[in-house]
Design a binder for these strands. Sequence first.
RNA 1: GCCCGCCUGGCGGAAUGGUAGACGCAGCGGACUUAAAAUCCGCAAUCUGCAAGGAUGUGCCGGUUCGAGUCCGGCGGCGGGCACCA
Length: 868
Amino acid sequence: MNDIPASQDKAAPRYDFRAAEPRWQAAWDERACFAVPDVPPAEAKKYYVLEMFPYPSGKIHMGHVRNYTLGDVVARYKRARGHLVMHPMGWDAFGLPAENAARERGTHPAKWTYANIANMREELKRMGLSLEWAREFATCDPEYYGQQQKLLLDFWKAGLVERKESWVNWDPVDGTVLANEQVIDGRGWRSGALVEKKKLSQWFLAITKFAPDLLEALGGLDRWPERVKLMQSNWIGRSEGARLKFALTAPVDGMADVEVFTTRPDTLFGMSFLAVAAEHPIAAAAAARDSKAADFVAECRSMGTSEAVIEQAEKKGFDTGFRVKHPFTGQEYPVWIANFVLMEYGTGAIFGCPAHDQRDLDFARKYGLSVTPVVLPKGADPATFAVGNEAFTDDGTAFNSGFLDGLDVAASKRRAIAELESLGAGQGVVNWRLRDWGVSRQRYWGCPIPFIHCDDCGVQPVPDDQLPVRLPDDVDFSKPGNPLDNHPTWKHVACPNCGKPARRETDTCDTFVDSSWYFARFCSPRAAVPVTKAAVDAWLPVDQYIGGIEHAILHLLYSRFFSRAMKETGHLSVEEPFAGLFTQGMVQHESYKGADGRWLYPEEVEFSLAADGTRSAVVKGGNEPVTIGRVEAMSKSKRNTVDPGAIIAKYGADTARWFILSDNPPDRDMEWTESGVAGAYRFTQRVFRMVENALPSLPPAGTTPEAEGRALRRATHRCIATVTEALETFAFNVAVARLYEFANAIEAAKDAPGGAKREALEMLARLAAPMMPHLAEEAWSMLRPGDGSLVAQMAWPEADPALLVAESVTLAVQVLGKLRATIEVPVGAGEEAIFAAAEAEENVQRAIAGKPIRKRIHVPGRVVNIVV
RNA sequence: GCCCGCCUGGCGGAAUGGUAGACGCAGCGGACUUAAAAUCCGCAAUCUGCAAGGAUGUGCCGGUUCGAGUCCGGCGGCGGGCACCA
């Protein structure tokens, strides 16, 4: 199937989506179907549906189509269920790509961004989403980021904003801070220079103050996916352990000891070394004394700041020559610098027990350090137990461990901590993996952080009446470094406290800050304060939030922090921003490569099918062979993208929506296929034709369905029940399948009386409406001409329970768990009668083969199992 | 490397521990047509058998159960995240 024939076969009715879709979109607009007040009436059942807002890259992609279709189904369904539904849309508009565009094409980030927004808004409007566009904003609007600055100042007053030093990726050639994605194999993406770690003084939000609450409150999020909660829980990373000090045998630069954190104080007797991070003061001291140590520290520094890179790097170390004393035995151990010890976690120093930690073991084997097992697996012989290349990390019994011998791991930990405490060498502590949130970015296209640096008065907040701190329009991207810092005048400002010349903060916010409270701003998007209390109290929390699984940790955790911080500063009453969360899978497509290995767009490729079923492909209009590659996430670099704009223009929004919902469960990755879209298109035409063809034979609207139409009516009401259940559980692909079945059933019921048929067709339109809203309106308007009602404003249909009860059921009959027959029995048949019927089956007799029956199992409505 | 998922026909998938493969896509056969498209009817997990039927089958290995796609343990493959991409 290639193109949709526009005008063939005049005799067959054809649904003209090109005319119908804009017409129904206009009808919804005119009646303001999707508008809600900032403060809903007290009796209203509010429901806030939100999809993660898009980054305005220029065009919508299939991931957006999927995300917003899913949200729209929920919004339309909940509206029909009588809720007052808020469903807004906006733009996550700050970020790196706008600056890249400015550098590459000389377009100003604002101009580029707003042009992209204008284009994407039109594309989204063509999807027929039930959005309330009056609430739209972009995070780069000064009205938005100005309110964000107010929030930051409130957070600052509440002690939630701090300045600390932290490490960044530094490109020494470009003189810029690099994002992790801009570091490729340890080098800057533009300059190719080896990246260094550099320490900068930066702004932080004190998310760690909420760590215990962020963890505990996960338990109350009963409409969040378990895996997301688990990932957040692991990220926050509460662990119980001990902090303890190892005394240096001789002081180093005034340091008398090295403090480590461990979750395994029970393995202290198995220690073989102590290791510190390359950023640790001990490492600095070693580097100052020994050029080889300095080289090693420099090597670690060139690894960048990404944890993934650090942990995957080959484990390397350097023996500083310093030595520490064991707190229990007084024995001495070497102090190493190790590239796998993270300065940000614990104290930046560990003690190594190779027998019971895999990384320590790898390290010890590499450098020939001792490996002493101190936890004995159950049933192992202490005389012969040895650790090979696999550390033993399970529970067991302490041995080789002095006063800990004989204890299990948990008891041994407690005993070791007690001993450390009584010696004054350490104490039991709770440690968190979660770090404070560094929000400083040395970039132009972000929300300016509203502080002023004065040499006399220190850091001063920008006074409220000087907000928003606007980005300057005239910026120069040709010089290296932060354009705000380079700007000739922008940063020069009088100190608000003493009036002397001072400097504006030139760091801007991490864009995650922008997206951490937009859900609240939507409730009163034009307010002259960050949020109006009445609006957020009425609408929050978001009842259903929908977005990609890639945001499972950072964005969602930051938003949860923000709502807590906004509560503490009096802006919100809720702690949790999102009561319900649904995470969708990615949209994927086959990828294609030409003979020379270049990536090809799907529309450049022509396919053919061989007799044996193998597909092959050539470049369109020629015979250059094409390699059909893997199905993988759509990406520009692999050119395996499909432009939703083109699909909607060709097939219509309903087709695109229907296909994207039908293909697979929404939380799984889906594959976009052209043939699947064509199938969805055929179904839209089929529904239209069914209604069109039936119209002459239908009785007037409101006719009571006839008793003799019972079979079709049962199908109708079963469809209402099953589609409703599927929509409630996000099983949209199942809802689609039920509607296909129902359409098949209607067509099969050719002889059904008119009233039953009318009911069936009306329900088909109404049940499909959340998924293909335009066609539903079109069909409804044909079935109810002159009625003037919109499906978008109608209540959801209710199934008649009397039509749902079955009269008989089919039971599977198994012998020894293997299916041998099926029997049809009346509902409520007695168990003895059922067994008799089952055993009467010829096939069942053959399987029993005269053996004595040991047991009969009957699961009503399901199965009979005969055990012989 | 660490954390978290996923894996069912040619393909996407369905299936409260109870008839595996609903529904769709692709395919095949037929009707209609001068022909094609569109549409309609039918077939279809694999192997075996004329058929009735039988055997096998939900990534792999093992376990629990009358019964496992589903629960448990181990392994493999693929994907998401790892704090400056959004």
